[in-house]
Design a protein around this nucleic acid. Structure first.
Lengths: 196, 196
DNA sequence: AGTATTTCTTGACCTATGTAAAGTGTCTTT
DNA sequence: AAAGACACTTTACATAGGTCAAGAAATACT
């Protein structure tokens, strides 16, 4: 890593016009960094989230179990993105989602209480937070629309183009459940896309 | 209507443990009410939202156009719920969604600037707002999971059980696009569900 | 009231994706 | 190096849901 000072990940996450340098210093100081092994958990279903995370390196996924006990991957979080089970963290209720490292990962962490303090004392943090949540909601809605209007192979192509880290690092089964198809179907789609 | 004072809708929307009566009075006072005819618009794509709404009576939908120009209904908003195109209102960017009355409707309205004032001056409003956004995000994610794990007829049954107002008041074509299926398929599902 | 327009249903046929089961390849553990 | 355990592919067959076209029923328009 040729990067010094607060990581590239922190700087890119908190890149917002309302922040002054002084505010950024306070925000960065509230984060600590740590490592997580492949398959390790940041949150398990039934637990209530007490922090959110920022990925400096690696890949993380959210998953739930369907009625047959199959794992459904509901989100992938890539480098320089926030890992936050919002409804558990902000409504203070147990999570239905599991959050697991797909690869070895380096992460930043900020605790709920520290964030609460920043949020209620700095208008800029509130605006930043609300905009982030809006963007999350938008993405989630776009995902539903994509599930309705696009074929499985279009959705896979979209992933290849826009989130290549996922296609490179996550196992086929996780990608398939994220796309809403059987793993055999994704295997078939791959075949038809590359030789056929 | 046997209801007096601030409507049942306002009281149920702003039902949160942190609010004092004094605060509620200020919040209610920031709302005005008005009526909207069937098929009328609260927001059209390309416009930037300047308020959000609360439905006292009637049904409202969000829709987008897919690449073929077909309308895809992405959300239905029922009585005593909030109508808010969050990413347009809070990121101050043009909406990709249209917001249209499915039936004649009675609504409450609050402007962005008035809400901003309440939001930045009252910690309780911030907590309320963040919890509402969290709940929206949760619902949106649940919807994606439902699209992946449930058949079209299960999704329709779910709608009948949990949001009967939609099934009663929205035309079949809108419900079908919301469920992610062709209108002919929904018609067939109805037939199989009721006779045979 | 009568016509036009939209809404809903139905049938015939088609296709994308699911399910199940077997086979190959790759990594882990000992 | 052998034995398991995973990860991925492939084939055969099943099915939910799509498309298109024709009618019937309901609504809206003049």
């Amino acid at each position: 890593m040729s990067d010094s000072g607060p990581s590239r990940a922190l700087r890119s996450i908190y890149d917002h016009p309302l922040f002054t340098q002084e505010q950024l210093d306070k925000i960065f100081a509230a984060h600590t960094n740590f490592e997580l092994k492949k398959n390790g958990y940041l949150l398990e279903q039934g637990q209530t989230a007490n922090s959110y995370y920022i990925i400096a390196h690696g890949l993380v996924r959210f998953y739930v179990h369907d009625y047959n006990g199959n794992e459904i991957t509901t989100q992938f979080i890539c480098e320089n993105e926030i890992v936050n089970e919002v409804s558990s963290l902000f409504q203070r209720i147990p999570s239905v989602q599991n959050i697991q490292a797909v690869t070895d990962a380096k992460l930043w962490k900020i605790d709920f209480n520290d964030f609460q303090h920043l949020y209620h004392t700095m208008e800029s943090v509130r605006e930043w937070g609300r905009e982030w949540m809006s963007a999350q909601l938008f993405q989630s809605q776009q995902r539903s629309i994509e599930m309705i209007t696009q074929s499985a192979s279009s959705r896979y192509l979209h992933l290849i183009e826009h989130r290549p880290q996922i296609v490179q690092q996550a196992p086929l089964k996780q990608i398939a459940s994220y796309l809403g198809i059987a793993d055999t179907s994704l295997s078939r789609i791959r075949k038809e896309m590359f030789h056929g």
